[in-house]
């Protein structure tokens, strides 16, 4: 809270005080764009480089999902698909929607949009599951020529994409959601 009242600057640190986070929308959009860009190589390039005695395999995210489906692991395929495709893309869409909806009347009320932002922020910290899996696998499976798993460039891109999306969600000043809303306060 602003102290003392009516002061334009913080008496403790001297930084300027703003009623709304400055350039919040711009920063959100910039982070979102960065996240989107990072997501492209994450889906194109291989996530895992698996070399076993017999063969060497590079699997992308979607390729992995297809492989899992082929092997009949329907549940695993759904988990991977949801965690690596649905959720990131859902977050992008959600943030985009929230940015667009600032100061406008939409089907979703300000309450619902606030909830949406909170959900996006909450999910953000759990979106690294893919990266964790890759990190753990590559740390564990280093059996030289018998079997080796190495992270691909997509793992880095995916992690960056998650980080950028989280930053985008955080950059969005939630007060903007309520601006122009009659239900204010």
């Amino acid at each position: 809270m602003v102290y003392p009242p009516l002061a334009g600057t913080c008496t403790r640190c001297g930084s300027a005080l703003h009623s709304r986070a400055p350039l919040s929308l711009q920063r959100t959009i910039a982070w979102l764009l960065a996240g989107l860009i990072a997501y492209v190589p994450a889906s194109i390039y291989p996530m895992l480089l698996t070399s076993t005695l017999f063969e060497r395999q590079e699997s992308t995210i979607l390729g992995g999902v297809v492989d899992l489906l082929h092997h009949g692991s329907f549940g695993d395929a759904v988990i991977v698909f949801v965690a690596s495709v649905v959720i990131p893309i859902g977050k992008f869409l959600a943030i985009l929607y929230l940015v667009r909806a600032v100061g406008q009347h939409r089907a979703l009320s300000a309450h619902q949009r606030q909830l949406m932002l909170e959900i996006v922020e909450f999910i953000g910290r759990w979106s690294m599951i893919d990266v964790f899996v890759v990190a753990i696998l590559s740390a564990l499976v280093q059996l030289d020529s018998v079997a080796t798993i190495n992270p691909g460039i997509a793992a880095v891109s995916f992690a960056l994409s998650v980080v950028f999306t989280m930053l985008a969600a955080q950059s969005l000043d939630s007060r903007l959601i309520w601006d122009g809303s009659e239900t204010g306060t």
Partner: peptide, 28 residues
Amino acid sequence: AAEPDIRPMRQGLMSRISLVWLVPVLAL
């Protein structure tokens, strides 16, 4: 009770464009 002293932001190039834009440019 205390109406804050609200002033419009200074109009400067640096203050109107966020530095964060560098990130997507770099990513691209």
